[in-house]
Amino acid sequence: MARSTEFDVTTSSGPSPYLRPALEWAVWVGFALLAYSQTGLFDREIPEYRFGATGWPRAVCLLMIAGATGQFLMRCLTIARGVVETDAAEEAPRQKLSGREIAQRTAIFLLPLVYLYAVPYLGFYLMTPLFMLALMLILEVRSPGPLIGVPLTVSVIFLLVFTRLFYVGMPVGNLPGFYDVNNAIIGFARLGM
């Protein structure tokens, strides 16, 4: 295989080049050992099956340790050859993120979790349009047309296809008031059926 010349051999001026591979190795081995230790909780014999319930998962954990060690050694070998690993992200000039940008990125990851937490209490039918609206606001949509139109269109299509046609029942919430509103939406979608 011909060797590419797309990369540069550079020298590092930052922390030890071995730090990141070592950390990655530690994370993988730690994870595998944790999983291995948990297998002890179901280490029971199975009649007529020598490897028991733990044989396969333990083998996978050991292979994971072997893979992580192989990766670590290979990367050490690469570094020892005088080549320092660089991430594309590290090579790009680092820009200082503003408070707003940090908040936006955090919101992208937090919003689905907040939604998931709220749905069993407040109901899918009520929360989902609000979730879509919030997501679009995070994605910097500011025009009122799409902000109202997209959640409305998706909700109507959902109600027609999944609620009316296929009878897919989503959570209706368990808090008084919200439960009733969600059921009212379902009732409206199935009107005349």
């Binding site: 993988w28 292979l63 994971m64 893979g67 192989g70 990766q71 290979m74």
Partner: peptide, 22 residues
């Protein structure tokens, strides 16, 4: 190596549940 470790994660996730023999 990263490919192998990804596959191993999948194999480990597949063991969650009940074992296929007992």
């Amino acid at each position: 190596w990263k490919g192998w470790l990804s596959v191993m994660i999948g194999l480990l996730l597949a063991t969650v549940g009940t074992d296929p023999v007992g």
